[in-house]
């Protein structure tokens, strides 16, 4: 589904990513861990097109996407969430989910001006689908609330709902459990496993090892912009190089 080949990104003299190779396939949850500043978010931004690598190749769903504009990558079936929640705060919960299906629609302003049947049908379809997704995430009673009025947990859930609204083939989750308690984290883990069961490729950046062990099939460890090791969650936990990266060397 997703494959990175020798992806390198530097900002001035600072190398954020150095020859990163990564594979993520459908129906599998890929974990990405690493200490702060290891380049995890840079990697996610490069995949989703908000940033572009200096060299290397990113292949998503059979297309080279390293130079593509973000909206086109999204149209290929990529969705993401953000480390610090980024919702459209002046919009209602329902509109937030509807906006994610923007590129699926075809109606133009012209259709809307004349209230053509095709436009109304499309609006109804998008609205219904958005309501279904809100129902799934238990947010349908809040549909007309402004996104900014939601509680923190609900905002996280809404962001996830928005990511899944357009039937993506792959979802990037950037620290989805930040600020959540143990129970909420576990519920989120269930959701991730649901996505996996639905055949969606999931790439999850996380610090919470409990969640990583719960959901991940394979884990990449990033340190100073380089892939340190790859393995199953259990292997990673025992790997001395990983422990050293996180805790430092024992003198």
């Amino acid at each position: 589904m997703l494959s990175l080949k020798n992806v390198t990104r530097y900002f001035g003299g600072l190398t954020a990513l150095n020859c990163v190779n990564l594979e993520a396939s459908a129906g599998q949850v890929t974990g990405l861990i690493g200490p702060n500043g290891a380049g995890k978010t840079t990697l996610i931004n490069n995949i989703s097109g908000l940033d572009h690598p200096n060299s290397g190749q990113i292949i998503f769903n059979g297309h080279e996407v390293q130079r593509m504009a973000p909206h086109r990558i999204t149209a290929l079936g990529l969705a993401r969430t953000y480390q610090n929640i980024r919702l459209f705060n002046e919009m209602t919960v329902l509109e937030n989910v509807m906006i994610a299906q923007h590129f699926l629609g075809k109606s133009t302003l012209f259709h809307s001006l004349l209230q053509l049947p095709s436009h109304r049908k499309e609006e109804r379809f998008i609205r219904q689908k958005s309501l279904d997704i809100l129902e799934q995430f238990g947010l349908s009673h809040l549909q007309n609330e402004l996104a900014s009025n939601l509680s923190y947990g609900d905002q996280r859930r809404l962001e996830m709902a928005r990511a899944l609204a357009a039937d993506p083939k792959m979802v990037l989750l950037d620290e989805p459990t930040a600020g959540m308690n143990a129970v909420e984290t576990e519920q989120l883990g269930e959701k991730i496993l649901d996505m996996k069961a639905a055949g969606i490729a999931v790439l999850v950046v996380e610090h919470d090892m409990a969640l990583i062990s719960q959901v991940c099939d394979i884990v990449y460890v990033l340190n100073f912009g380089e892939v340190l090791t790859v393995g199953t969650p259990d292997e990673i936990k025992r790997d001395p190089a990983v422990i050293e990266a996180y805790l430092g060397r024992d003198e």
């Binding site: 504009a69 909206h71 953000y82 002046e90 994610a100 923007h102």
Partner: peptide
């Protein structure tokens, strides 16, 4: 409201 997020929601900014 958020240009970057809009772009990654599939909107041609």
């Amino acid at each position: 409201q958020d240009e970057r997020v809009a772009a990654s929601q599939g909107i041609n900014v």
